[in-house]
């Protein structure tokens, strides 16, 4: 992706030389996934050519993917260009933001969930003080309330459990 190649200088300095085998992990992941589908597909039954079984398509695609993943692992192991340095902080923060939405929306409704998600998502940004994060959360919540509940009338519960 183009934006990965366009990182700020600070990031480029911080980028460590990658170990080659790490780059092949993607292929390994795909291989594992394909094995799950092949194994599961066989369990579901392959059927006959005339009446292909429930598991036939997962097994066919799984086998194709397994072969391709092996090729990808080989290609990636020979690839010596610099890999990206993962940003686990943002990875975790965005995950937490989605989790916050799921939990809060279930218990308290949409608008509290929007507030929680906004605040959690903005946590990794050091330039915004905590008060700013809370204000941002409030502004986004009010905006979403007006837009999705007030104007568009989506069938979502704005508040619940109060």
């Amino acid at each position: 992706m183009s934006n990965l190649q366009r990182q700020s200088p600070r990031d480029l300095e911080a980028a460590r030389a990658p170990r080659a085998w790490l780059g092949a992990l993607g292929g390994v992941g795909l291989l594992a996934l394909s094995l799950v589908f092949i194994w599961g597909g066989i369990g579901l039954g392959l059927g006959a050519p005339r009446r292909l079984g429930t598991g036939a398509f997962p097994v066919i695609t799984g086998c194709a993917l397994a072969a391709l993943s092996v090729a990808i692992i080989v290609i990636d192991l020979r690839d010596t260009s610099a890999a990206e340095r993962p940003d686990w902080m943002s990875f975790a923060a965005i995950g937490a933001a989605l989790a916050a939405f799921a939990i809060v929306a279930d218990w308290f409704g949409l608008i509290p969930a929007v507030f929680a998600t906004t605040v959690v998502a903005s946590l990794p940004d050091p330039t915004l003080p905590i008060l700013g994060k809370l204000i941002l959360g409030l502004v986004v919540s009010l905006g979403c309330w007006g837009l999705f509940i007030g104007l568009l009338d989506l069938p979502l519960q704005a508040f619940k459990g109060f």
């Binding site: 965005i94 998600t117 906004t118 998502a121 903005s122 941002l136 979502l156």
Partner: peptide, 26 residues
């Protein structure tokens, strides 16, 4: 810093509105 929390919220609401089910968010 203001944009991305807003985008994530829009994504959440978009997904949530499909089935009204938080499982979709997970």
């Amino acid at each position: 810093k203001y944009m991305y929390p807003t985008i994530i919220v829009l994504i959440c609401i978009g997904v949530y509105s499909v089935n009204n089910n938080v499982f979709d968010i997970w």
